[in-house]
Amino acid sequence: MAMGRNSRRIMGLTGHYAGLIAFAIFTAFPLWWAASVGLSTNPENMYSFPRSFWPTEPGLLWFAKVFTDMPFLTYLKNSTIMAVMTVVGVVIVSVLAGYPLARLKFVGSKTIFVIIILTMMLPSEVAMIPNFITMKHLHLINEYLGATVINFSAAFGIFLMKQAFEMVPQDLIDAARVDGATEMQILWRIMVPVSAPSIAALGIFTLVNAWNDYLWPSIILTSREKLPLAVGVFNDLTGPFATSDSMVMAAIVMTVIPVLVFFAFTQRYFVSGMDGAVK
């Protein structure tokens, strides 16, 4: 009996892990392949499968070349600046907007919330043409701010912060009011610290999106010195600056790895901070 139960359990676990591993192969194989190609100092097997899933004459040649033959560090710097700008912008705008929608009674709050949510449905890509013209007027073409500011006011961020603030007990806000806090002080000294997990989730989510934003930066940023990784590395493979495929694969791996490590360390926060959005 005990044996039967044990073996059933082992079989269940085996199936469980088999499913996980199969799916992990599905999600990870492109990165694995890119890594393998990047690590092959000899590119002759690059397109012969399955051989190319294992490096030929492994070495760090191409990874070293990324730094010398490609403006990788410039791209990295640009990605970092733009990602940080976006995170700061999104968090400030979302926190400010989420608080009144969650906790203050005022005329029009429902309408405003519905309008904000409705913007999720609008195809923002259609807005690229007018936004391009607006940016021209604002002299923000080829500027970091021009590439990021359109993402600051995001329905998802406002929604997430509204949900997070709604979960803060009313007593806490009342206590702060009695203690003499203004609404601004309640927001930054009580609501924000108490909702830290949700804000962290929003920050991580925004950072990843900003890091990978491709289309708009590729339109608005005109000089190579301003390009982020997502645009620069793609252009270097397909565009007029096309260089060695092996080197680009190495660059791809180096683009993904920082985000991946970042996510692996923060995923706990990410998941727990999201629960406001899904309840």
Binding site: V208, W211, N212, D213, Y214, L229, F234, T255, V256, F263
Partner: peptide, 10 residues
């Protein structure tokens, strides 16, 4: 999560 955090271009 690798695909999500990989830029679509890449």
């Amino acid at each position: 999560y690798i695909p999500v955090i990989t830029s679509i271009s890449i």
